[in-house]
Design a binder for these strands. Structure first.
Lengths: 208, 208
DNA sequence: GTCTATAGCCCGATAGAC
DNA sequence: GTCTATCGGGCTATAGAC
């Protein structure tokens, strides 16, 4: 494993520390998240996951029911994390709230790109029952952003012809960071958050 | 097959008519594109593809070397199509050119969502040699958009703190349409193009 | 060009020892 | 809780008849 891989493991291990115990279960989940993010769920074998975690293929089934169960845990907790990120922003001014929300949401998709890619691109691999759980979390995320746009339009801070369309574009912009971001790229996650907060405020600001 | 599926087939058949002959090869390629877009490359079996095309599993190998070859044809021609879409816009005014470019690029990702999803989300499944061919086309697409931003900044039509960052955001916004667009959604591809052209011009316009 | 049949391989998941 | 060994099945691709 490269030192970049080790750094990423340490970051993810800290990030998942509260949610998953014991250690072996967490190691397996992080291995799965990295494999799913790299190659996609269907291209990943349970043997891949076990090898990344330094265990035998059968060890996957000690802590998880199936490969899909592993995906569900990553997706569910990942969605809960990103929703919590949004609800933590409490600024009463709509423009400030939008800027802080976009900065947090976009930079999360860069910093936790591994988790974010699983969250955003592997929905279709979930079982119908598990997909329904995650879809409910996604609705909450979408509503949260739409409300900020609506508040801004009410207060006069924003002026857009299509509020739902604008909210869709804001979410889309942040989510797509998980697709193009590379850890060795020019911009840090924080810089991406700042850049995007600025671009979104320009997009929503009233025409002068 | 549903009537929606038949309508989509007719659209794609027309779209691929010039590029792929004979008919059986084109039918197979369209079947593959629909399967890859629905479930992803790795989740799609050659049996799926053949069944969608109404042929036997072995028929895939009459016109294509492998499953990956089928993916490469879709990806390469899809990238060429979307690049051609951009170079067709020739307006001398940077703001008008950007608006027309974004409208065309975003609406293509909606109307040809099936092809676009393969183009944007299955790069990792290409062989290294095939990936290199497609990566060169992607660089041309990125450069094309970056030049419009630069021209607009030079002319004073645009004012942004980070030109590369702004070009990245514009491309990202259009590409992500392929992820969220649904044919039965509220907005037509044309309406999405118009919405996005407006939002992008707001984003790039000088602060007053 | 298209079919049926199948070779050869690898997958997800389980059994049972320790 | 982790291992080795393996089952049953589905996969990509090919062989050979028509």
């Amino acid at each position: 494993m490269t030192s970049l891989g080790e750094a990423e493991f340490a970051l993810l291990d800290q990030s998942w520390h509260d949610a998953i115990t014991p250690d072996a279960a967490r190691r397996m989940l992080i291995a799965a998240a990295q494999a799913f993010a790299d190659k996609g769920y269907h291209a990943t074998t349970t043997r891949d996951i076990a090898a990344r975690a330094g265990m035998s293929p059968a060890a996957v089934y000690i802590h998880y029911r199936s490969k899909e169960d592993l995906l569900f845990q990553i997706s569910k907790i990942g969605h809960e994390r990103s929703l919590k990120l949004l609800t933590a922003v409490q600024d009463p001014d709509p423009a400030d709230r939008m800027a802080a929300t976009v900065a947090a949401f976009a930079s999360w998709h860069a910093e936790f790109r591994t988790t974010a890619r699983v969250v955003q691109y592997e929905l279709g691999a979930l079982s119908p029952e598990h997909h329904a759980v995650v879809a409910e979390l996604r609705r909450k995320i979408e509503t949260h952003v739409r409300v900020i746009v609506e508040d801004g339009v009410k207060s006069g801070a924003f002026q857009v012809p299509d509020q739902n369309g604008a909210a869709l574009a804001v979410l889309s912009l942040c989510i797509d960071v998980a697709r193009w971001y590379r850890p060795d790229g020019k911009r840090t996650p924080r810089e991406i958050g700042e850049l995007y907060a600025d671009l979104v405020l320009r997009m929503l600001r009233p025409l002068s």
